[in-house]
């Protein structure tokens, strides 16, 4: 089985790091995984994204034409990627910054106030990791344990002091009441 994920937002929301944590968690779970960032001219205009492909077999293509799960942390990302979701796929949108519009009937929408939850936690920079918690719960593809271990690996030494807060953010996202709307 192969699934792909796109995490997108504006620069500074930590989408590349969130993708790296997700990819590391898949690696720890023994999956084949590939992480691929948007870079260069594509990044101008404020959106950054990365794609993570996890598979039981060797990952072949990246930059796929469609996507199983998309996490959109801002409106521009929502607008850009809504078309790219597979039939039956899931859009996880940060409803703190994204309008709750559901124009496609063939996909699942999960509107979660991710930024607001991060603010309530006391650090808006936790938005990205909180989103991973939501994604973990919604996708059932990756365990909280592997994500926590991945965080421990990915956070650089000078950020290690933020590990407990990151774990808390993951759990808040994971435990948030996810009723598909």
């Amino acid at each position: 089985m192969e699934k792909n994920f796109i995490i997108a937002g504006f620069g500074g929301q930590g989408v590349l790091l969130a993708g790296e944590v997700l990819a590391t968690a898949f690696m720890l779970a023994g999956k084949h995984v590939t992480w691929y960032p948007s870079y260069g001219a594509e990044m101008r205009g404020g959106t950054v994204n990365c794609e993570v492909v996890a598979s039981d077999d060797e990952v072949s293509a990246v930059n796929k034409i469609d996507t199983d799960f998309i996490v959109a942390l801002n409106q521009a990302s929502f607008d850009k990627f809504i078309k790219k979701i597979k039939n039956g796929g899931t859009m996880i949108a940060n409803s703190s910054l994204v309008k709750e519009l559901k124009n496609r009937a063939d996909i699942n929408y999960l509107f979660t106030p991710i930024t607001k939850l991060a603010e309530e936690l006391g650090n808006i920079k936790m938005t990205n990791i909180l989103a991973l918690g939501v994604l973990a719960k919604a996708s059932k593809m990756v365990s909280l344990e592997h994500l926590i271990e991945a965080l421990d690996r990915v956070l650089p030494p000078h950020r290690k002091n933020l590990l407990p807060l990151n774990i808390k953010a993951l759990k808040i996202g994971y435990e948030y009441d996810l009723l598909p709307v």
Partner: peptide, 9 residues
């Protein structure tokens, strides 16, 4: 550029 920028185990 694809290989240079992508991450894999």
């Amino acid at each position: 550029g694809l290989l240079g920028q992508m991450m894999e185990p």
